[in-house]
Amino acid sequence: MVSSAPRLRFVDRVNPVTRLAALVVLTTPLLLTVDWLSAAVALGIELVLFALAGVTPKLLVARTWPILVSAPIAGLSMLLYGQPEGTEYWSLWLARITDGSIELAVAVTVRVLAIGLPAALLFLRVDPTELADGLAQIAHLPARFVLGALGATRLVGLFVEDWRAMGLSRRARGIGDHGVIRRVATMAFALLVLAIRRGSKLATAMEARGFGSDTPRTWARVSTVGGSDAALLAIAAAVAALSIAVAVWAGTFNPVWS
């Protein structure tokens, strides 16, 4: 989606579907525990790996700032409302800061980073067409849905132009200075109308090219997987396994269902 992003070493050679799979393999185990150690180990290794792939600190901040901002906020919520345990330092109505909640808060903050960063960085540069080809040819998802979704993503550029024009027109019509919420609501609604109209026309255009019939489809572009893909999956699995193992060994492993 973001084509202006710089190329990453290694990662860019991997099929987007494999990157998605690697993301699942890497971060799903981390979701099963709330402990600072597993998250910190994973985060540390991730940062080293991405640095090796060519992610500079500047790029990191530019692409992941929402995650960097929201991580401490998630921690704050846990700090106040995490299950109380041990010494209590402060309390107000339902909010209680305790030894237990402090530990949970740190764990959640690091966990958000460990889970969020790889998603943002693995997909720095992803070509929707390549992703769709992979999803249909490698993951064997239903082609009609994959290609329908792909067609829809191409309309995004038009939506952006629509949005700009609508913003200018609101000023021209005398309602540009007041009632931001109302104005944005009328624009969002008009955008939805235009989007559905365009979608209907696009559907007709796609059908006119034989899309959606029962004829088995061929693929003009081949989506392939190879050694790099296997390697990325192996790395993801290893990082996940190592992080969990370290936490279990150190005794901090804290499954979410406990």
Partner: peptide, 20 residues
Amino acid sequence: RWRVVDIVVASVIGVATGLV
């Protein structure tokens, strides 16, 4: 059964909602 227009418009709504 989903028609082509069902798939494409559902996709458009999905993408637009994703932007929201």
